[in-house]
Write a protein that binds this DNA or RNA. Structure first.
Lengths: 228, 228
DNA sequence: GGCACTTCGTGCACGATTTCACAAAGCCGT
DNA sequence: ACGGCTTTGTGAAATCGTGCACGAAGTGCC
């Protein structure tokens, strides 16, 4: 998150930023920013702040973003195609090194400049380009098989878009992005808001004379939401 | 997460599950599962466990998933089209209630069964279908404007796919999904793994006789990853 | 060169979350 | 009906993360 903000700042010509400034942009506490950045080393200057470019460089280095990480996408359905077509990936250091599908009808079609290849070619693709990151964009039922194949092919990090919990051997990192879960969390907040409204109406209807429902009890939560 | 696992279990015919079983599947501690579920009420049976169907029902109710939440998508580019075309949304209770774009060239094209409408129609769409959730699928530069328009139209929850921090009034919930950030986190793990390998090689080369690099110091982290 | 001012880096305290541990509660076999 | 077994629900303890406060270190003006 810091990296993103810092790059944005660098692009608008900001050369130096204080922990407080960065904290404001990130929606967190300034002390937290300093503590977080201190894990990278002492890259700030007291009385001045942090040099944006240098900090960007250091964060990139720590995250391993000083070189490209080609990724292979498994599943050329709706989502797989969108991901392959989305230029933002390559721009940010993750070029699409290949896209595969199990369905012969999809093989050899072209999406986003890459030709879809058969999933059996996965080991060859991963080996040739030395790929260590795989993206699972299959239907739920095929996701575990896709993950197994990725692991067998030598991939050690997986980004999973399928709404299932993948089981992988130790030493393989999985991250899951579940769009429905994100929506469910929003649903929960909406639900609470509508309950809140009902309660307020009841209070108003009963001509109540109660303490106002101030922001204080929920402020911490609200802040987290805003910064998320 | 529990909901997802429970639904999966229900589909495979499991009728009852213990906190320990659920904890295993979720990759967390059993006591945590019990404490989490206890916030919903006392829906377990001592000596037996939790009835899967009933628990699913209770979690759904708490999350506000007992009715549909139509969503409106802003941005009919690559990602917006994929989201609109992806059936999984509607299936999980979030039907696409509309998709809009600012570009006249895109207006009136049809994606995923919905006709793209102009962004100026946002208030009408939101009002007509009583929509409270908006999805921002625009390029970074247009995201804040999209969010502002959503808020003005009356939306109170936003799912943001653009890699920028949106600022919204208090009372509006924003969740951000940033695919590049997910990949960056994987990159970080890969980076560490490759550093690890180098260190091991050095150790081996120096004929070292050191304590083995066991899984213990990283096990907590690994567990978090697996369960994420 | 010295002084006022700014901002970092970090020890410490507090609050939140997670885990432990155990009593209470229910099932099942006899 | 009762005792043994299992598993929940929840106080208490331990751990973890965050924010405060302040010394250290730098800048810039006079």
């Amino acid at each position: 998150m810091y990296l993103q903000i810092l790059v944005e700042q660098a692009d608008s010509g900001v050369e130096s930023i204080s922990s407080e400034g960065l904290a404001e942009l990130a929606g967190v506490n300034a002390a937290k920013v300093r503590k977080d950045l201190s894990y990278l080393g002492s890259y700030g200057t007291r009385g001045v702040g942090y040099e944006v470019d240098y900090l960007v460089y250091q964060i990139r280095r720590e995250l391993g973003l000083d070189h490209d990480w080609p990724v292979v996408i498994v599943g050329a359905g709706n989502l797989g195609q969108a991901l392959a077509g989305y230029g933002g990936f390559g721009e940010r250091g993750f070029p699409v090194g290949g896209i595969v599908d199990i369905d012969d009808a999809k093989v050899d079609t072209v999406v986003g400049g890459a030709r879809v290849r058969h999933i059996d070619e996965l080991p060859a693709i991963v080996g040739a380009k030395n790929i260590s990151i795989g993206v699972v964009a299959t239907p739920p039922g095929a996701a575990q098989d896709a993950a197994d194949r990725l692991v067998r092919a030598g991939v050690s990090s997986i980004l999973n878009f399928a709404p299932v919990v993948l089981s992988v051997p130790a030493g393989v990192t999985v991250r899951k992005v579940d769009l429905a879960v994100e929506l469910q969390i929003l649903s929960y907040h909406e639900q609470r808001r509508s309950e809140q409204r009902r309660t307020n109406q009841l209070r108003a209807a009963s001509g109540g004379n109660m303490a106002p429902v101030g922001p204080s009890p929920r402020s911490a939560e609200a802040r987290r939401d805003a910064s998320a």
